[in-house]
């Protein structure tokens, strides 16, 4: 309450330092690999970091950020990725036009989101358990749809050219997947930080009861959040499918843990420790750079995961330890 001024200043300094953990780590990693790994700095390599490592994870992590903002988590983001991919591939395979198939893909993701919305907003199950259940049910559903988990390949000949646009196209010299990621990030940043919806979602995450006591529809916001999360994740599914021209059942789960990690690392960037899109994106960038840098520096391929894990751990430890009261 009545802290000595010097102490207050010190405290502010510590707080500022904890916010800097992520940007400093990013710069340090960048400099380190520039020195250690020949070829890391090459434009071609950096572009490959963005296209191969960054794009899909950033979209999924942005989706996750909305769930975390609302005070929850979504373990079934990968399921939304998969369902979108399955719907997209199935319709293309059935000879439907690509735009319709894309819409169906978004619809596939939305199904997962609606299911979560019913569980979380309707019944009141905690998001962790609800989305864990969705994840498990989603697994079986996918395996049933694919005769026990067989990939659905698209015949190279029969696929319309427009199918590849999302994953492999380029516009004005820039790869389309990257443009899509940029668009998703920009829209998400505006929605979360500037829109009325984003404001209420943030308030829900901080103190859900205050939202209800303020005469705002709490359940509607919770439901909309989880549908939005699934829709954004579905975009990642569409880009992924367009790149690899195959639907592999239960492959979306690969993004889950890194997306959670990035969203939480990102909170260290915010003045009040709130989930935020910029932080999430920097978190994804950090993870992508480390993965690529370790690869380029000729270190054993498998050290990547150790490095990533240690880095997440350090950033979290620094930021949590400095928040001690």
């Amino acid at each position: 309450m009545s802290a000595v001024p010097a102490l207050g200043a010190e405290r502010r300094l510590v707080e500022a330092a904890s916010r800097l953990a992520l940007p400093v780590a990013l710069v340090a990693v960048f400099l380190l690999f520039s020195a250690l790994a020949p070829g890391f700095l090459a434009a071609a390599n950096l572009q490959s970091v963005l296209v191969n490592n960054f794009t899909l994870l950033s979209i999924v992590a942005v989706a996750m950020t909305f769930a975390v903002s609302a005070g929850g988590i979504d373990l079934s983001v990968g399921t939304a990725v998969d369902f979108a991919s399955f719907a997209f591939v199935s319709l293309v395979l059935a000879g439907q036009p690509v735009p319709l198939a894309l819409a169906a893909g978004l619809g596939g993701g939305a199904v997962v989101g609606l299911f979560n919305a019913v569980l979380i907003a309707g019944i009141g199950i905690s998001p962790f358990l609800a989305t864990l259940g969705t994840l498990f049910i989603g697994r079986s559903v996918q395996q049933l749809l694919t005769n026990g988990g067989n990939p659905v390949y698209l015949p190279p000949a029969g696929v319309p050219e427009s199918f590849h646009l999302l994953g492999r196209g380029s516009l004005a010299g820039l790869p389309v997947p990257l443009l899509i990621a940029a668009l998703v990030i920009a829209l998400a940043a505006v929605i979360l930080a500037r829109s009325r919806f984003g404001r209420v979602v943030t308030a829900v995450g901080i103190e859900a009861e205050v939202v209800r006591y303020s005469g705002l529809p709490l359940k509607a916001h919770l439901a909309a959040t989880y549908v939005l999360v699934a829709l954004i994740a579905a975009v990642a599914g569409l880009v992924l499918t367009s790149t690899v021209t195959v639907y592999i059942p239960n492959s979306g789960n690969a993004f889950l843990l890194n997306a959670i990690g990035a969203a939480f690392i990102g909170t260290t960037l915010h003045r009040h420790g709130r989930p935020n899109i910029a932080g999430t994106v920097l978190g994804v960038l950090l993870l992508s750079l480390v993965a690529n840098g370790l690869l380029m520096s000729g270190l054993n391929f498998y050290w990547q995961q150790v490095g990533t894990g240690l880095l997440i751990f350090t950033v979290l430890a620094l930021s949590f330890a400095s928040r001690k009261v």
């Binding site: 959670i260 990690g261 050290w303 894990g309």
Partner: peptide
């Protein structure tokens, strides 16, 4: 989060 990060490190060490 703590065990998530540790999971990454441990999984990586196993690969190494």
């Amino acid at each position: 989060l703590a065990t998530l990060a540790v999971m990454n490190v441990v999984g990586g060490l196993e690969l190494v």
